[in-house]
């Protein structure tokens, strides 16, 4: 009974501080400016020159462990990568699931496809959903729309990501195009940019600690790459994680840097997704893809 009383007291306490105090002391990496276009990397890591044309990457660079990071790992994406891997099986399963969900066309229209046509849909997410009054990523939209039809495709689950890979494959080769210049999308981009520079976790690191200020340097055996152009190949087949959505990648980044991860679809991860998708504007969707 004592514990219950304590819980009730803390409940009242919560109500008291809800919405209060943005004046909590938090630390930030120096806040930089970014272009919401993949070509902005010319002023960032300047590796864009090596991976800007995904069809014509340099084979020799791809095979050289001292140089392959300059290709931003794009040599593991189609059309350059001809290997059949787990991402292809995910795409097949995603197609089956999608067709089952969309027998009456309601799933496609809920996702925002015009006349059931999925072409270009991936390239225009995340987007503002008026009925939800917030910005959502494609995987969260898949979760919500499947739920409306009575199916569970939890954000981050294999089946959710498989449907996402299938939908993305209908936009393969089309440049990512989201508008972060106004309204709620601009607000999300700005929050995402600030989060990218927000220090967190037991090591007190921000994303930008490495991906803005240490690009090209070694962390043990790996080399830090640019944040530009990085979301075009998600969800991605990972040898260790089967199929990984962008938000699950954020969770992995968090765990690697000793930071408590968040739920996929959380406001912070969605804002980060908007920011990084902005940095990928103009780069073609490339699925199914693999990474180590």
């Amino acid at each position: 009974m004592g514990i219950l009383k304590q819980a009730l007291i803390s409940c009242v306490f919560v109500a008291g501080v809800a919405g209060a105090s943005d004046d909590v002391y938090r630390e930030y990496d120096p806040l930089e400016t970014y272009e919401p276009n993949v070509a902005g990397d010319r002023k960032h890591s300047n590796t864009y020159q090596y991976w800007m044309d995904p069809k014509n990457l340099d084979w020799q660079m791809a095979g050289n462990p001292d140089e392959n990071w300059k290709l931003n790992w794009k040599f593991m994406d189609p059309p350059f990568n001809p290997v059949v891997h787990g991402g292809h099986f995910a795409e097949d399963r995603g197609e089956t699931l999608y067709k089952k969900l969309n027998t009456r066309g309601r799933f496609a229209s809920c996702l925002g496809a015009t006349k059931g046509n999925l072409k270009g849909l991936r390239a225009s997410y995340p987007r503002y959903r008026a009925e939800l009054k917030r910005v959502v990523g494609l995987e969260e939209a898949i979760e919500i729309c499947a739920k409306r039809l009575g199916h569970q495709l939890e954000n981050g689950s294999y089946d959710n990501s498989a449907v996402s890979v299938y939908i993305a494959s209908r936009s393969n080769g089309m440049p990512i195009r989201i508008d972060v210049s106004k309204g709620p999308m601009k607000e999300a981009w700005e929050r995402g940019r600030k989060l990218f520079h927000t220090r967190a976790g037991r090591f007190n690191l921000a994303c930008s600690s490495c991906h803005t200020h240490q690009v090209g340097l070694h962390l043990r055996g790996t080399v830090v790459t640019t944040p530009y152009g990085d979301v075009a190949h998600y969800p991605v087949y990972r040898t260790r994680y089967q199929l990984q959505s962008l938000h699950l990648r954020f969770a992995e980044c968090n765990l690697d840097t000793r930071t408590q991860p968040l739920r996929p679809g959380s406001g912070a991860y969605t804002d980060l997704e908007v920011f990084l998708t902005g940095l990928t504007n103009g780069y073609p969707v490339s699925v199914p893809s693999e990474r180590d």
Partner: peptide
């Protein structure tokens, strides 16, 4: 294999200071 709950996260709802 590590408990990371005691340090600030990236959440918008995290009210804990650095």
């Amino acid at each position: 294999h590590r408990d990371l709950t005691s340090w600030p996260t990236l959440s918008h709802h995290d009210k804990r200071p650095t």
